[in-house]
Design a protein around this nucleic acid. Sequence first.
DNA 1: GTTTGCATGTAAACGGTTACATGATTGG
DNA 2: CCAATCATGTAACCGTTTACATGCAAAC
Lengths: 175, 175
Amino acid sequence: MDVRTACLGILTRGDATGYEIKKLFEDGPYHYFVEASFGSIYPALGRLTEEGLVSVRAEARAKRPERKVYSITDKGRRAFVEALTGPLPEDRFRSPFLFAMTFEDLVPNEHLKAMLDHQIATAQSRLVQLEQSASATNRGQAFVCDFGRTMYATMLQYLKQRRSEFAAPVLDAAE
Amino acid sequence: MDVRTACLGILTRGDATGYEIKKLFEDGPYHYFVEASFGSIYPALGRLTEEGLVSVRAEARAKRPERKVYSITDKGRRAFVEALTGPLPEDRFRSPFLFAMTFEDLVPNEHLKAMLDHQIATAQSRLVQLEQSASATNRGQAFVCDFGRTMYATMLQYLKQRRSEFAAPVLDAAE
DNA sequence: GTTTGCATGTAAACGGTTACATGATTGG
DNA sequence: CCAATCATGTAACCGTTTACATGCAAAC
């Protein structure tokens, strides 16, 4: 999903500044399947404003830089629902890890072990985060959260199960 | 993984033309976690040649356009192993589907049903493809293939299990 | 007193896709 | 006869990232 549409989505849930939108992408339940930097969020918000899909009000605050609070308009709301209703781009999973594993025979065993351990640690921490995350506020959020838990749990199980097969130390039996 | 590195990887397995590399990305076991278009492959190959990481020989064939067969050089092989050994970019899963599900309350139930069914059908066909795919030629390929099978199987199970919850027809009980 | 958090934005560079241009061969 | 496959490449465009520029307030 492009940043434009993602911002529009966030704003259907309530007003926000560009800064807050970034926070929501990072910390919120969207974290696992969308992401965006300031360099894409601010221009997107500018364009959405031009097109009348969102409106801005500048809040001047004593001794701090002004903040621009964005609200979605009716037109924006309609455009967003249209985007959700139309054909969605396909999900894509890009995995440098799996790519590297394909060339496992070219990588020294020591590094292979490190790679697998890193992958396990990452999956583990993501799973923990998902399990600790606040219970969802609606059906959709619950669906997505459970999806993530299920997938990461499976991934973790698979990686752990297969690890020994690849990382069996040959000489260093003590470790 | 960028197209450059991906091409280099393919060429560690044997010589190929730009056209064949694209085919391998599309049909081979890489399909699920890398992709590239001609517009990125040809320039990448050109740059790799300039840098001496690959070499080209032009095969002129009677009455057909010439083909340029690329081979990886020793320098290229070393560069590739270095890329695999260095820190890898993080895996990323971008899911317009999950994003849309988060806003399930804004989408008409009929469309939600279609979305889920589409997702189920996609996962199903990918799983079938993976299950039918030729058995891997090495440990790494087997690992990756099984990874895919495991993940898609889990995804499919989850989607099917949850479908009723979301798509329960309200009026059209006959369907 | 230094780091973190809040807050906005721009410009250049990057990597990639899409569309275009070309053309012969093979299979239905 | 038409579509698909083989085969190469370029140019325009697009969205995004990275780095830069700025600055105050609060927490440590």
